[in-house]
Design a protein around this nucleic acid. Structure first.
Length: 643
RNA sequence: GCCGACGUAGCUCAGCUGGUAGAGCAACGCAUUCGUAAUGCGUAGGUCGCCGGUUCGACUCCGGCCGUCGGCUCCA
């Protein structure tokens, strides 16, 4: 029997016989390692312990110390859950599990009745029993026919259908533990006893193969860790995350209100409005630099313009419609600015000399989103985007994309936001235009993103109907991804509106059109920004910038005088003249995330100074300074939009 | 829209198997006038999401609707 060489992380090389498994190698390194082993890793890919090694390679043994170990544990707990469900509900059919086990696991089941919370408790209890049975996971490679026979006999019709989706020529592997068997690529732990702590999260409906037209299966989510402590830590992290959920902070900090009488349509309260306006003003301040012109176009338009744009057919059910005042045709509240911006372009004869024409608008947009999709400020029916449409010559598109990303970088840096994921979304099933044009446009966009210095992932089939799109995604506090900034090419609108310009050759040409937003929807941006900052906004965006805290009633006059001076300098100031102790006022201002507090007592009043306490830098007693100097310092920081 | 859970005072929440509601914080009043994260006492505040049903009696049980939350789907 021939031998192969296995390179280890510490630089050593082991000689093992060809066909030895990952576990064999682990045992050869040490019995302790073999006991702790959860999986192997070859060239960055996780492999199952029972995988045989046919050629020399570099191998790493993954244990609980490796973050990937948790994924293996959760994946294995997933099988234990399906086993438990089958034991308690023998009629249940098992569909597929989850592919991403970084945080949780899941399985979909076809059952007559949805699972109740009591069912989940019973399933969780059953899972514990199964783990105690200490069954080894067994990996089998079988033929397609064999697999089909096994699952047909078990009555697992969904599984048989899934089997048909596996391309020919690919190994079909099964994993067993005890009597439970499932079609699975692995990897799995050696023995169920390695699953130290499990927890079911919830049950939810999910359409078979993710398609609304299919029947709804019942999904169970759960998570698992090597130890109870890790599970506890995980739950504590989640709890902390919920503390900074924008909906919670929105109430605590009086930023916005979501009313049952206006689902998905936020009320901005005075403090939220400061943040909203701050962001809008910031974007507007950049318009001269990046060459945008602001317009304002009608909220309500006749159906005709939406028929021209294509929105009437594509999104009729998702718009708000009304009867016209007379017997004229129906009118719709705009869901997007693009039709109107096309109309603006079409006014008068355009020359190449005017291009690129960049039209920006902050109008509120209304989309009649399905009730189940609404979520806080993240997904709303009433919103505004920092929207703009760029009309340019086709050969200017790449420059425009580059310019967009330059602006985007400036904005996100100024706001202290990082962690953006940039993705190209490609042609969807329903689209307008020529597929060949799409291919070219997609390629150009991707190149431009990479030229701007971003890694560009791909989301296949996710683009809008009119053209490919680049989306900048950001994760919320619960780990959900939301698109903020976006730039997309429009292959449809210029043609539909018959847009053209006179080129330098004297001929008429159709302009290229780009849709773009840096912040995306202001609502969604606020939701993520509130969570990102935990409501602790930079000075220039803080609803209350300075809290004046007089120590005793006799300081109230001086407090008001200082406040008036600050307010006259454009600073948002609040005087806490309640008959409360200083500590109480400080605590209150801390909880309201007021960035600067001025405690005023005899010392300050006599000297005519303030002693600012800067919350952000944890500076409790700064040097006393003259009020005028303080105002000057603050207005400077605000004007520079210091983070 | 679909699946599930939830909906009690401004906020956060308690209220066992049906007998018309309670706490903490906030608000308000009085006292306190205090130097860097909670002063004390008191007052007020709720047709228990809405509508209907069962019952002598419903916050509690049942049904419908509305909304919220978590998923699914959708997202110009």
């Amino acid at each position: 029997m021939s031998t192969i060489e296995v390179g280890l992380p510490d630089g050593r090389t082991l000689e093992v016989s060809q066909g030895a498994t990952v576990l064999d190698v682990a045992e050869q390194i040490g019995a302790g390692l073999a006991r702790a082993a959860l999986a192997g890793r070859i060239a960055g890919e996780l492999v199952d312990l029972r995988q045989s090694l046919d050629a020399s390679c570099s191998l790493e043994i993954v244990t609980t110390k490796d973050p990937a170990g948790g994924e293996v544990i959760r994946h294995s707990a997933e099988h234990v859950m399906a086993d438990a469900v089958k034991r308690l509900f023998p009629q249940a059919q098992v569909d597929a599990g989850r592919t991403d086990h970084t945080e949780k696991f899941q399985y979909d089941f076809k059952v007559a009745e949805p699972f109740t919370p009591e069912d989940l408790d019973a399933i969780a209890a059953q899972m514990k029993k199964i783990v105690k049975e200490k069954a080894d996971f067994v990996r089998e490679v079988v033929t397609r026919e064999e697999a089909e026979r096994i699952f047909t006999e078990m009555g697992e019709d969904l599984k048989v259908q899934r089997l048909h989706d596996i391309p020919d020529g690919q190994d079909i592997t099964l994993f067993r533990h005890g009597k439970f068997v499932d079609l699975c690529r692995g990897p799995h732990v050696r023995n169920t006893k390695q699953i130290g702590a499990m927890q079911l999260i919830e049950a939810a409906g999910a359409y078979w193969k993710g398609d609304e037209r299919n029947e709804m299966l019942q999904r169970i989510y759960g998570t698992a860790f090597a130890t109870k402590d890790e599970l506890k830590e995980h739950n504590e992290r989640l709890e902390q995350a919920r503390e900074r959920d924008h909906r919670r902070l929105g109430t605590q900090l009086d930023l916005f209100h979501l009313d049952p009488d206006a689902p998905g349509s936020p009320y901005y309260l005075p403090k939220g409005m400061v943040v909203y306006n701050g962001l809008v003003d910031f974007m507007k301040s950049l318009y001269p630099k990046y060459g945008y012109s602001e317009v304002m176009t009608p909220q309500v338009n006749r159906a005709r313009i939406y028929k021209t744009s294509g929105h009437y057919d594509m999104f009729h059910d998702d718009m708000f419609w009304m009867d016209g005042a007379d017997d004229e045709e129906e009118v719709g509240v705009k869901a997007t600015n693009c039709p109107c911006h096309c109309r603006v372009f079409s006014l008068g004869k355009r020359s190449y000399r005017e291009l690129p024409l960049r039209l920006a608008e902050f109008s509120r947009l209304h989309r009649n989103e399905r009730s189940g999709t609404l979520t806080g400020l993240s997904r709303v029916r009433s919103m505004a985007q920092d929207d703009a449409h760029i009309f340019c010559e086709p050969e200017q598109v790449e420059d425009e994309v580059a310019r967009f990303f330059e602006m985007l970088k400036e904005v996100y840096t100024a706001l202290g936001l990082d962690g953006l994921e940039v993705k190209l979304e490609t042609r969807p099933e329903e689209f307008m235009g020529d597929p060949a044009d799409w291919d070219v446009a997609e390629g150009r966009l991707k190149d431009a993103v990479e030229a701007a210095g971003f890694q560009c992932g791909i989301n296949p089939g996710e683009a809008a109907f009119y053209g490919p799109k680049v989306a900048c995604d950001f994760k919320d506090v619960l780990g959900r991804s939301w698109t903020l900034g976006t730039i997309q090419m429009d292959m449809a609108m210029p043609g539909r509106f018959g847009l053209h310009y006179t080129g330098r050759d004297g001929e008429e040409h159709q302009p290229a059109m780009l849709h773009r937003a840096v912040l995306g929807s202001l609502e969604r941006f606020m939701s993520l920004y509130i969570e990102h900052t935990a409501g602790d906004f930079p000075l220039w965006l803080s609803p209350v910038q300075v809290a004046i805290l007089p120590i005793a009633d006799r300081h109230h006059d001086y407090a008001r005088k200082v406040a008036d001076t600050l307010a006259a300098g454009g600073i948002r100031v609040f005087v806490d003249d309640r008959a409360e102790k200083l500590n109480y006022k400080i605590r209150e201002a801390e909880l309201q995330k007021v960035p600067i507090m001025c405690v005023l007592g005899d010392q300050e009043e006599e000297a005519g100074t303030v002693s600012p306490r800067l919350r952000r830098v944890g500076e409790h007693r700064a040097e006393a300074m003259a009020v005028d100097a303080f105002v000057e310092d603050l207005t400077g920081r605000v004007a520079r939009r210091e983070v």
